[in-house]
Design a protein around this nucleic acid. Structure first.
Lengths: 235, 235
DNA sequence: CCGGATCCGAATCGATACTG
DNA sequence: CAGTATCGATTCGGATCCGG
């Protein structure tokens, strides 16, 4: 009964009926990084109730956004359909928009591997990167570790354990030129609020290995301009 | 407490906390067309409960997306902030994405002036239009009437009565070269599923005045490719 | 452990009525 | 015109439980 339809014949309306329910776009965000098992999604979305996760996955499948793939080696993954994958620029743009309104982290906010991966894609400055020499970073935020490789306009991000190597993921060889660790305060480096030097000085960030001047290159490569009006950062 | 937070420190998460609630993005969609009064919004969103509309407006203001402007001539409008206006490319992209999943209209789906305005912006092919001569259309869909002017890569859309001339809107002068009327089936013209000729033939569209060959130009100017996989059109 | 299904109280939504 | 108030219908959130 409860006709949940918005009652309009319109593309935007159709879109929000497909991916506008609570949690749906965050599931899509994580699947943009790669195929994920039910349990991976649950871990990447620590606060999602399991019934909601399974309901969303069902709806997203019915909407043609997500598909369920039985794995040869026993198991099961969810993946975006080709149609679902077309959401990538939209999710990235939303992330860029929302980034500007991020305040300080809530007391029990977490940074997950997938969300950080998308955040880096969001902040990636292709043109700036193309003009810079290739670089190879290892970034730690909380207990998430990412291998971030930039070569020309290309960006490659791999998630280091934990969690276990993602399905279909390929571990990069070689040694990163720069290894550093940060907390959520890394946001202030990406926003330009803090220079790399100031970030180290404030204890927001520590260089674990490598030449710390590479941080300048990192900051030039990953940046989100505080566009128009920096809103007062909602609660 | 029922902390409605998603518990993640992430731009995408922040964005959906700001505009991810039910109805919120549709309010933004309508405000992208121009400032609107409470009652305008209610008419443009016929199925929104009034308490939800006022709740969303309040939340959007707190989030720095919408602002409330007392009108000199007695009255009150809601408008997007500069930050809110940055959602335009995102809403347009979502509309383009959702367009591909639109099936046939539900029995009591409506097409509103604002949603059609955004739909045309969504479908606008700047490059194609720039290569074509200027054009001046009047489009009727249901009881919505739009004046659509294309000049080079520029698109201007004005809403003809009803409803009354929008606040701050300016009525175009002159006479449109082509006036036509359609139903929701206009979607099939924009998707390329129907040629202009076939659309007339099927009764999807009637030319009321002007040279019907201009419909070719209209179809070339407003088009949405059925990109990757045309999903099976959700219920 | 993986992939959910079930149950229940709390919060939100939807519809309508009403008010300054 | 611009909202509140109210109340039943849904949905969400949290926890537990179940079959492989």
């Amino acid at each position: 009964m409860g006709s949940r339809s918005y009652g309009q014949y319109c593309g935007v309306t159709t879109a929000v009926e497909l991916v506008g329910e609570r949690w749906a776009l965050l599931i899509v965000r994580d699947l943009l990084v790669g195929p994920r098992r039910y349990t991976d999604l649950k871990q990447g979305l620590p606060k999602i109730p399991t019934n909601i996760l399974s309901a969303r996955l069902k709806e997203l499948q019915e909407g043609g956004v997500v598909r369920r793939i039985p794995l040869k080696s026993c198991g099961l993954v969810y993946d975006l359909t080709e149609y679902g994958r077309e959401l990538e620029p939209i999710v990235v743009a939303l992330g860029r928009w929302g980034f500007q309104a991020m305040g300080e982290p809530g007391i029990d906010d977490v940074v997950t591997a997938d969300s950080l991966t998308i955040a880096l894609r969001t902040a990636f400055q292709r043109d700036a990167a193309a003009a810079l020499p290739p670089a190879d970073y290892e970034v730690h935020v909380g207990d998430v570790a990412l291998r971030v490789q930039v070569d020309g306009g290309e960006l490659r991000i791999a998630q280091l354990a934990p969690p276990a190597p993602p399905v279909g993921g390929r571990m990069p060889d070689g040694v990163p030129e720069l290894v550093f660790a940060a907390g959520p305060g890394i946001r202030r480096l990406i926003s330009g609020e803090l220079t790399p030097f100031a970030a180290i000085d404030d204890g927001v960030l520590q260089v674990l290995r490598g030449d710390e001047t590479l941080l300048e290159r990192f900051a030039a490569t990953f940046h989100i301009e505080a566009g128009a009006a920096a809103p007062a950062a909602a609660a």
